[in-house]
């Protein structure tokens, strides 16, 4: 995969069966389409993940740990930052994420609240970055529009 920067529009390319495809952030594609007045067909719905047969049992600790790690990463948080934001000890979070400790409801709630806050700020930052990229790209290609 090759990282390409066109003006300020960031995307990557990948070649499948000899055909190059561009990969760009979905929210940026949507912002560009809105700017161009193009309607995007609805994206294919996300694949439904079958329920984990071990969920709700003692064996579920590893599954919970995996889901927490995924969610923390999506929120763009390190263990230390999440632990601090949730008000729990980083050692405790580390043990939870390694499946060594089963957190109680109150602890999971603190983690979820902290991750939701972080996810919201990532979303806001992404929306601002998309808007800025679309504006700069438009201005670069249509200098008249900048005035």
């Amino acid at each position: 995969m090759r990282r390409t920067a066109l003006k300020t529009l960031d995307y990557r390319t990948v070649v499948l069966d000899g055909i190059p495809y561009a990969i760009l952030r979905e929210s940026l594609l949507q912002a560009l389409c809105r700017r161009a007045g193009v309607q995007l067909p609805p994206a294919p719905t996300a694949q439904v993940v079958p329920a984990d047969p071990l969920a709700g049992t003692d064996l579920d600790r590893a599954g919970l740990a995996r889901r927490l790690v995924d969610r923390r990463k999506r929120a763009g948080l390190t263990q230390a930052r999440l632990a601090r934001a949730a008000g729990i000890r980083v050692e405790t979070l580390n043990r939870i994420e390694r499946g060594r400790h089963t957190p109680d409801f109150a602890t999971v709630r603190k983690l979820v609240v902290a991750m939701q806050r972080a996810e919201a700020s990532v979303r806001n930052a992404t929306a601002r970055a998309d808007a800025a990229a679309v504006k700069e790209y438009s201005n670069a290609n249509d200098p008249g529009a900048a005035r």
Binding site: A55, G56, G63, R71, F105, V108, R109, V112
Partner: peptide
């Protein structure tokens, strides 16, 4: 039953409650 039938884990319970 949220756990036995729907396979909720503790993260699901917290999300659902919220």
């Amino acid at each position: 039953d949220l756990f036995a039938d729907l396979n909720f884990d503790s993260l699901d319970v917290v999300d659902f409650t919220m």
